[in-house]
Amino acid sequence: MRKKIAAANWKMNLTLAQGEQLINDILQAGIKLQEGQEVVVATPFPYLLKAKALLKNYPGFYVAAQNCYSEKSGAYTGEVSAEMLQSIGVDYVILGHSERREYFQESNAMLAKKIDVALAYGIKPIFCCGEPLEIRKAETQNAYVAKQLEESLYHLTAEQLKQVVIAYEPIWAIGTGLTASAQQAQDMHAYIRAQIAEKYGREAALGLSILYGGSAKPGNAGELFACPDVDGGLIGGASLVAADFTAIISKLA
């Protein structure tokens, strides 16, 4: 049974005090996770240790970094390595988010290196893929996403792939108020799973968690998560409001 995951991506938001309050509010909501369900909280780097301490006694709750560098160590001022993240007990790392690709020119080849270094230090990558609006309008989104998968993931062994979570983000639906329909989300998730099956086999594909990452909210999360190939969400803005995020967690199928 593959994991069902609600992952919060805070991006560059909140002070430490605000972040601590948000986590406490989520925990005090009394969420009862079912077997195979996880909540992942991706905080800014300065808050990771605090988030880890707050969540340590809550089974099923994990901490993620929002990025790591592609090299193990060295003269890379301002960067954070996977070894550093491992040393403070980080469980997951988001890699390839559309904002990183756009603003910091992260290529598929660089992301392949980041995937490798994260796995080398026992950190599970949440690998983001997805198409911009012009690609969706041209109806070439499948080929676009397939290239992202091929160039960043297909060098992995089947055993390594078991540690990876994929998050499909239709870039045109991030921060725009637009949301892919449940059918659009399901179609792409099914396509991604079929691509993985073709490369790694049916068993590997069926065990892979694929999250939806395009402006999911309490009002549409239930419909999205009910899709057979949607295994939860990578949540942005709604994860900054405790009531909204806990409502989304409750929709995990």
Rank of each mutant, 00 (worst) to 15 (best):
M1K: 11
I5Q: 03
I5A: 03
I5C: 06
A8G: 11
N9A: 08
W10P: 08
K11Y: 05
N13S: 14
L14V: 09
T15C: 08
T15Q: 08
L16G: 10
Q18G: 15
E20Y: 00
E20Q: 14
N24L: 14
D25P: 04
D25S: 14
A29Y: 06
I31A: 06
K32A: 15
G36M: 07
V39D: 02
T43I: 12
P44C: 05
F45L: 12
K50D: 12
K50M: 15
L54M: 11
L55M: 13
L55S: 07
K56R: 14
G60H: 02
F61N: 03
A65E: 07
Q66V: 11
T77D: 09
T77E: 08
E79S: 12
V80P: 08
M84R: 07
M84E: 13
G89N: 11
H97K: 08
E99N: 10
F104Y: 15
F104A: 11
S107Q: 08
A112R: 10
D116R: 13
F127T: 02
L133G: 00
E134N: 14
I135Y: 01
I135N: 00
I135L: 01
R136D: 01
E139D: 13
E139N: 13
Q148C: 03
Q148A: 01
L149D: 03
L149F: 03
E150D: 11
E151L: 11
S152H: 03
L153A: 08
L153S: 05
H155D: 09
Q160N: 12
Q163R: 12
V164D: 04
V165F: 02
A167K: 00
Y168Q: 06
E169P: 03
E169M: 03
A173V: 10
G175Q: 04
G177Y: 06
L178Q: 15
T179E: 07
T179V: 14
Q184D: 14
H189D: 06
Y191N: 08
I192L: 09
A194R: 09
A194G: 07
G201Y: 05
E203Q: 13
A204H: 00
G207T: 00
L208V: 07
L211V: 06
Y212E: 00
G214N: 03
K217R: 13
P218M: 03
G219A: 12
G222V: 04
G222I: 07
G222H: 04
V230A: 04
G237T: 06
V241W: 01
K251T: 15
L252N: 02
